Amino acid sequence: MSYDNIEEKGRMSYFPAFLKLDDKKVLIVGGGRIACEKLGHLLDFTSNISIIAVELSDEMSGIIQSRHLHFEKRGYQKGDIKDFAIVIVAIDNIPLQAEIFQESKEYSCLCNCVDSSEYCDFIFPSYLKKDDLTIAVSTSGASPAVAKQLKKYLQRLIPSDIGEFLQEMKKLRESLPKGKERMKMLETKAQDYFNNRSSKWM
């Protein structure tokens, strides 16, 4: 697709990227069902998460306690996001969403306000995770329902032993010298792995 065609659509699609969260602090504002859903997604990738909320659902309270996450029982205050790389705003207060989003620009903090795309630097894609494999699906907001069903479809295609195979490939990459021969051997091995399982998908 050309750049001209992208501009003609009126907006650009979201850029797919996998963020390394090892050294990044995440803040969730809110303690209801949606906040709990976002917390569950984030915990697949990091535990460096803090929560600020006036009230917590029983489920979210249980997760916070079991995972020993930092929680402050109060409303959001200006400046709360200054030490965070990412903030998830899961509250119904739209004016406060807008306020936090604007404030996030002062601190170069990535912001996601649930159900308010105009106040989002990024979105949560529908994804599936199996060991080292992560597959994310997005329709750029056009149809979350389609993304959800496509995720289920892809899940049925993933071989049950993919985790073991990825560990084997990882060890080979680490043990073999870099170069075209290693690249060719690993590509052939990956191709053979899926060819040997393709009959199960037909």
Rank of each mutant, 00 (worst) to 15 (best):
F84L: 06
S2P: 04
E106M: 12
E118L: 09
Y193K: 04
K9T: 06
E174P: 01
A136Q: 07
L150N: 01
H70R: 12
I100Y: 08
F45D: 00
D92C: 00
G10D: 03
S61I: 15
D44M: 02
D131N: 11
L128D: 04
I91F: 07
D80C: 01
S140M: 08
N195L: 14
T139L: 12
L133T: 05
G163L: 14
I34K: 07
T188P: 00
S50Y: 03
E118Q: 12
G62I: 11
E103L: 04
S199C: 14
C111Q: 02
A147Q: 12
I123M: 11
S143G: 10
E168N: 03
G32T: 13
G179L: 05
C111F: 04
L21Q: 00
V146Y: 14
L27A: 02
V146Q: 10
C120D: 00
I135E: 08
S108K: 14
E174S: 11
K129M: 01
K151C: 06
L110M: 12
C113W: 10
E59H: 15
Q97G: 06
I135N: 07
I81W: 11
E187I: 08
D131F: 07
F101W: 03
F194Q: 03
D22W: 05
K170F: 09
L19V: 10
I94S: 10
L166R: 06
I88E: 00
F124V: 06
S104C: 11
C36N: 13
R33H: 10
I86N: 01
H68P: 01
I91H: 07
V146G: 07
Y119I: 01
I52F: 06
A85Q: 13
E174H: 05
D58L: 14
F122A: 02
D44K: 05
A85E: 13
R173M: 07
K24C: 06
N196G: 04
N5A: 12
S61G: 15
K38I: 05
V146D: 13
K184Y: 14
F71N: 01
P177T: 00
I123C: 14
L21T: 00
N93E: 12
F84A: 01
S199T: 15
Y107Q: 09
E55S: 12
K24Y: 04
D58G: 07
L133K: 03
K184I: 15
G179T: 06
G10V: 02
C120N: 00
F71H: 13
S175C: 10
I51D: 02
S116A: 13
C111R: 04
L43H: 04
P125D: 08
G141C: 03
M183A: 09
S160R: 05
K82Y: 06
S117M: 02
I91N: 05
Y119V: 00
Y193E: 10
D22Q: 05
Q167L: 11
N48I: 03
L166I: 15
I51F: 06
L21C: 07
K148P: 03
L27I: 00
E99A: 06
P95L: 10
S138N: 06
Y76I: 04
K130R: 14
E55H: 06
S138C: 09
Y127N: 03
S160W: 02
F124M: 13
L21I: 03
R173I: 03
I162M: 13
E181Y: 10
V137Q: 08
G179R: 07
M185R: 15
I64F: 13
L69W: 12
P159G: 08
E118T: 06
G62C: 14
